[in-house]
Amino acid sequence: MLLSALISALNGAIAKILSDDISALEIVFFRNMIGVVLILWALRIKPPTLEGGKIHLLFLRGFLGFLAMILFFYTISAIPLGEAITLNKTSPLFVSILAYYLLHEHLSKRAILALLIGFLGIIFITKPFGMSISYEHALGILGGFFAAAAYATIKKIKDIYDSRVIVLSFVMVGSVMPVFLFLLSPYIDAPQYLMFLFPEFIIPQNFSIWLLIGFMAFISTLSQWLLTKAYSASKASIIGVISYTNIPFAIGFGYMLGDSFPDFLTFCGIGLIVLGGILVSKAK
């Protein structure tokens, strides 16, 4: 999980660079298409041994992962990288809630307090004190929820599917859904706030963009495999805490790319979210 967190921060930085030239949906498409090739190659070298089953949960994991990814890449293009990744990392808080309702994991009073602390951190980051909340920040939080739902499905299928097959479901759905949305885009008069889901498909002409796309696809697929292995090996809430380590890396990468340095309230929010995650793990 520690390696996955480091790689995902670097992946976010590359996605932010690419967002200046291509849409978030194209980033998702190219990232996952190359990921499909990499995972199929790995499966050919060493075929899976688990028999499988519950194909609907495998598809659900892929679909929820796609929703989380498109929202994540869109928020990366719209708000500072450190904030986008922090909001995405609210997923461990949501994981604890979903694990309680769906997986029947125990959720103590101490864990509930930890969740409240974590969500207070969200308020500090989004700063909705003017009776409104940034649309991009709201999508970032929603992306965190979908990521949590995807992680929760891993716990349901980890014993019947090879981790590479689980990742394959994610990258395959993440390749097919963008194609579907690209085909629909000429016929959809979407409102401005949903335009990021129906952009025009434009093939990149710059070779350096293709190099970045290929590198991002490789490291993000590696990160997904490491993440899947981590969630399969230990409690979701404990692994989720370790994932917070990518926040300082993301802040550093974002600052190097021109993001403003987080203000005091944002730092407080980040601290509260991390504290909430740590307390959740200790409450288990």
Rank of each mutant, 00 (worst) to 15 (best):
V165G: 03
W210K: 08
R44S: 10
N246L: 11
G144N: 03
K282H: 05
F261T: 10
I251M: 11
L64W: 02
S185K: 14
T221V: 09
F207C: 11
G118N: 07
K109H: 13
Y193D: 15
L184R: 14
L211Q: 12
T266S: 11
V176R: 10
S8Q: 12
M195A: 15
Y255I: 10
L212P: 00
Q224R: 04
Y100R: 13
L257N: 02
G52V: 06
S163A: 11
L98K: 05
P178F: 06
G144P: 01
M256E: 12
A149H: 06
S134M: 03
F72Q: 07
G118M: 08
K158G: 02
L194V: 12
F170V: 00
D159M: 04
A152P: 06
D159P: 02
L181Y: 10
F180D: 13
K282I: 06
F29Y: 05
T86D: 02
G12Y: 01
T153L: 04
P186W: 12
S234I: 04
E26C: 05
I55T: 15
F267K: 08
R31K: 07
T221S: 09
M131H: 15
R61L: 05
F180Q: 15
P48W: 03
E51K: 15
F182M: 09
I79K: 03
L3T: 14
I213N: 03
I97K: 11
L222M: 15
G271P: 07
M131S: 15
L25I: 05
E105M: 11
W41P: 04
R44V: 06
L184I: 14
K127F: 09
I188W: 14
M216R: 03
